[in-house]
């Protein structure tokens, strides 16, 4: 458990550094630019409300990116250790689990609350959005769990094709939720094309962060395995 946590934090820190750098070099300038466009287009200057300078925002946001990676990595390590026996995929288990994490933490909330393009305004206050966001993370976790459980169950008895089919059902249900969900953003800050491009950027960067965590985690985890410190018998593993 402690070894897994260590691997997770290391993976998270490395992935977080890359992600923080990405936030610094790509996200901040893009957000700045889009907000600039938005404040010139309409009269709801989103950037007028800032109480700190742009440099501070960029630096702290990059640091936030690093911490975000560490947070996800730590949670990933512990949860992976607990749920590993139930995961399909053999050698690819960390990737399966990272996909589940991405689904729960990012994709599920996005079905109702899509990533806000700079310049758009949320329709509802944060008192409604915060519980909704947390609730959707739980929903995403349930969807991922049902999907994985369905796959392992069905592929054992009815073959792999049936397993994949059953695994897709919860994902399709989540997709339907995104279609029937009412819009939560307003404002014409950016054009539809720019808005879509920004959302793809956000989506791919989060998916990349999870993938990086899984890659690095798997590397460290195998190292522990080879050294024998990650012994399968619980008695041989110290609690530190």
């Amino acid at each position: 458990m402690i070894d897994r946590l260590r691997s997770g934090v290391t993976a998270g820190a490395l992935a977080g550094l890359a992600y923080g750098l990405f936030t610094w070099l790509v996200v901040s300038p893009v957000v700045r630019h889009l907000e600039h466009l938005a404040s010139h287009g309409g009269d709801h200057g989103h950037d007028v409300a800032h109480t700190v300078g742009e440099t501070t925002t960029a630096v702290v946001s990059a640091g936030g990116g690093v911490l975000w990676g560490i947070l996800l990595g730590a949670a990933f390590g512990v949860a992976y250790h607990l749920f590993e026996p139930g995961l399909p995929g053999g050698e690819l288990k960390p990737y399966v689990f990272a996909g589940a994490g991405f689904l729960a933490v990012s994709v599920a909330p996005w079905t109702v609350l899509p990533p806000a393009t700079p310049g758009t305004e949320p329709l509802y206050g944060s008192t409604l959005r915060v519980p909704l966001y947390l609730g959707l993370v739980v929903v995403g976790g349930l969807v991922a769990a049902t999907s994985i459980f369905g796959y392992t169950r069905m592929s054992r008895t009815r073959g792999r094709g049936m397993g994949v089919f059953v695994a897709l059902l919860p994902l399709v249900a989540l997709g339907l939720l995104s279609i029937i969900a009412p819009p939560t953003l307003t404002g014409d800050g950016a054009s539809a094309g720019l808005s879509a491009a920004f959302r793809w950027l956000v989506g791919f960067s989060q998916a990349g962060l999870w993938a990086l965590i899984a890659v690095v985690f798997r590397r460290f985890d195998r190292e522990f395995d080879r050294r024998g410190t990650n012994s399968p018998t619980p008695t041989a593993r110290g609690t530190d």
Partner: peptide, 23 residues
Amino acid sequence: LLFMQEPLAHDALHDFRHGAGII
């Protein structure tokens, strides 16, 4: 990282929240 509404910390993390798609 996600929910802090205190203006200083909130604004400083603004780009990060946009980039990570946190609503």
